[in-house]
Amino acid sequence: MVTKLTLLCLPYSGASAMVYSRWRRKLPQWLHVQPVELPGRGARFDEPLQTDMHALARQLATEHKPALEAPYALFGHSLGALLACEMAHAFRALGCPEPVALFASGTAAPTLRSDYDRDFAEPKTDEQLIDQLRTFQGTSEAVLADKELMSLTLPVLRADFLLCGRFRPRERPRLKCPVHVLGGKEDKATTEQLIGWSQETGGSFSVDMMTGGHFFIHEHEARVLRVIKEHLEGHHRRYTQMSALAR
């Protein structure tokens, strides 16, 4: 029987958990990829959208706690990175162990967001949201012109931007787990904003920079998955050894 390490994956703005479905086939058997669906999309389409990051993190941590088995790690891209960090704190507040690693991808650190998110604190019009999608260069013009599809996507995107724009970091003890940051060289987040994630932990810290813009996690999926695997296989090996000794 293979001892598994769970990887909880948080989606970026406007996305559902399905963006990580391919990872299940591409990561090793010992790594259990668990995409986290947010309210208002996918299988949770009928649930109200959330615009409070701290409340959403508490909700998700409470939902996942019953099935949470150590060890586990958290991965999030953009909005998902902030949410993953907040979930780590929420799990700790619920009496769960910390993750063995937190992967924060494609966004500024929680304490360095005043410039990064200053335009997202108020609701955007449909036109403003579509313009923002264009700047990310991850959505085709054909999709942007599809009114029916946009009518489903834009309310989710609007709420997700408010999640980021209204987020305010809280004073609390740092995490102890390693934090690994991934960034795109042509993305919005600056090197300083990415390195700022080091302030979130008293443990080890690393940054991996890749070519590409905001959606480098798709452009360079193989490298992203390799980084995740390399950082987690040591934790998996130690946990497997401990499990064997406990039998």
Rank of each mutant, 00 (worst) to 15 (best):
L74S: 00
G76P: 05
H77C: 03
H77Y: 04
A81G: 14
A81Y: 00
A81T: 04
L82K: 00
L83Y: 03
L83A: 09
A84Y: 02
E86M: 05
M87I: 01
M87R: 09
H89T: 03
H89K: 08
A90R: 05
R92A: 09
A93E: 12
E98L: 13
V100N: 05
V100A: 04
A101L: 10
A101S: 07
A104P: 08
S105Y: 01
G106F: 01
G106Y: 00
T107E: 10
A108S: 10
A109V: 12
P110G: 11
P110M: 05
T111W: 07
L112A: 10
L112D: 09
L112N: 07
S114T: 13
D117R: 11
D119C: 05
D119H: 09
E122W: 14
E122G: 13
P123H: 09
L129E: 01
I130P: 00
I130M: 06
D131Y: 00
T135K: 09
F136V: 07
E141G: 07
E141C: 15
A142R: 12
L144V: 02
A145C: 03
D146S: 08
T153Q: 14
T153H: 13
T153Y: 14
L154K: 08
L157T: 04
D160H: 07
D160A: 13
G165N: 10
R166C: 13
R166D: 12
P169F: 06
R170A: 12
P173W: 12
P173Q: 09
P173H: 07
K176I: 08
C177F: 05
C177M: 03
P178D: 06
H180P: 02
